[in-house]
């Protein structure tokens, strides 16, 4: 479960100017296994909210509890350990490591697992291969990102996101850099895997189709949550 209370994020500006408020007083509760879409125009604070929920940044005010842990009480490395254990990420611009093959990219989260959950090298590789097969890239294991199309790169990104069997998956506009058809395929894949593994999924998106398929939509406007609760309402 994710629990956010009064989340506010301000960034300092030039001396003498008031700080820039990107997010203000956001309260949010996401149940286990729930799929939540965050919608909103550019600059409304969607990505900032995602970053705060995932513990990538610290809020100026308010608190986030992720998997029972208050993020403010953890230092950066402890938050990283929490992410390694139970968080997955899918990025808009794929964010694959260019010097690693598709298989190695998927292996990274498995190598970062805490000791008690660590897999043997062979088991980790087996799992990475299975995931890449699952996303339809069995023939592309040893390809470098530059040798893959955008859709293929995002499939690798999805395989990587599920590699450590996360309890929560954050997706930042996962179809934003893809054409409509490929976007649909990728969204389908993401939701299928989510269902199969029972992952909590939080998606920042502009894609209304993707939003419609979520359990709940949160609409952000100028850093605040707009009063719309169901996906249909919001969309």
């Amino acid at each position: 479960m994710i629990l956010a209370r009064n989340l506010t994020q301000r960034y300092p500006r030039a001396e003498g100017e008031r700080p820039l408020t990107v997010l203000e007083g956001v309260d949010l509760e996401v149940r286990d296994g729930e799929v939540v879409a965050i919608l909103g125009p550019s600059g409304s604070g969607k990505t900032t909210l995602l970053g705060l929920l995932a513990g990538l940044d610290q809020p100026s005010e308010g608190s986030v509890r992720l998997e029972g842990q208050c993020l403010a009480e953890l230092n950066e490395d402890a938050r990283a350990a929490l992410r390694a254990e139970c968080v997955g990420f899918v990025f808009q611009s794929f964010q694959l490591l260019s010097t690693l093959t598709a298989l190695e990219n998927v292996l990274v989260p498995l190598e970062l697992l805490p000791r008690q959950r660590a897999l043997s090298a062979a088991a980790a590789e087996r799992r990475a291969r299975e995931l890449l097969e699952r996303v339809g890239l069995a023939a592309r294991l040893d390809h470098y990102p530059a040798q893959l199309s955008g859709g293929e790169q995002q499939r690798v990104g999805i395989a990587r996101a599920f590699a450590n069997e996360p309890r929560v998956l954050f997706a930042d506009e996962p179809t934003g850099n893809l054409d409509r058809e490929t976007g649909l395929e990728v969204a389908e894949l993401l939701l299928d895997l989510n269902r199969e593994l029972g992952t909590t999924l939080i998606i920042v998106t502009h894609d209304l189709v993707l939003a419609q398929r979520s359990d709940r939509v949160i609409r952000l406007e100028a850093g605040r949550v707009a009063p719309a609760e169901t996906a249909e309402d919001a969309v």
Binding site: A54, L56, E76, D77, A80, A81, L82, R83, A84, E85, V87, F89, F91, Q95, L97, S98, T99, V108, P109, L112, R160, N164
Partner: peptide, 16 residues
């Protein structure tokens, strides 16, 4: 820098 940011978001600590 970008690659390391990804690694960090995937759970790599600064020590790693």
């Amino acid at each position: 820098l970008d690659a390391v940011a990804v690694l960090r978001s995937l759970g790599a600590s600064s020590t790693d």
